Simulated scan of single mutants.
Amino acid sequence: MSFVIAVDFQIKPGRMAEFRKLIDDNARASVRDEPGCSRFDVCADRKDADRVLLYEIYDDRAAFDAHLKTRHFAVFNEASAPLVAAKTVCEYDLVCEGSAA
């Protein structure tokens, strides 16, 4: 069963461009470099320009734990901290994948 993380970020006003550079780099590196990461989406809120939602799918909890130990995550986590006003992290099990494949 796949492990899903959803992270809701409220970014400090005027800091979104900096945050997006950091999170986009982290997302791309996660999918490219981590065999256990199959999806890492960065979603912009249509009504709140300072809000971002991440949707990440890992093979299992161990793959997510490995993600937390990567260099690209450490760089993102440290550099983005002063840009974030609030953050909510939710963990899920993927129980039904509604893809056409």
Rank of each mutant, 00 (worst) to 15 (best):
S2W: 01
F3A: 01
V7I: 11
V7N: 07
F9P: 05
P13R: 04
G14F: 01
R15K: 15
R15L: 09
R15W: 01
A17W: 08
E18Q: 11
F19G: 02
R20Q: 14
R20D: 14
I23K: 00
N26Q: 09
A29I: 04
A29Y: 07
A29P: 02
A29E: 11
S30G: 07
S30F: 02
V31C: 04
R32P: 03
D33E: 14
D33A: 03
S38G: 15
D41Q: 10
D41N: 09
C43V: 15
C43L: 15
A44G: 13
D45N: 14
D45S: 13
R46M: 14
K47V: 14
D50V: 08
R51N: 07
V52K: 01
L53Q: 10
L53E: 08
L54I: 08
Y55G: 09
Y55H: 12
E56P: 02
E56T: 03
I57H: 04
Y58G: 01
Y58K: 03
R61T: 12
A62I: 09
F64Y: 13
F64G: 01
T70E: 02
T70C: 05
H72A: 08
A74I: 02
A79S: 14
A79T: 11
S80F: 00
S80V: 10
P82Y: 03
P82R: 05
L83M: 05
V84C: 05
A85K: 08
K87G: 03
K87L: 10
V89P: 02
C90V: 15
E91T: 09
L94C: 15
S99Q: 12
A100D: 14
A100P: 03
A101R: 13
A101V: 12
A101Y: 15
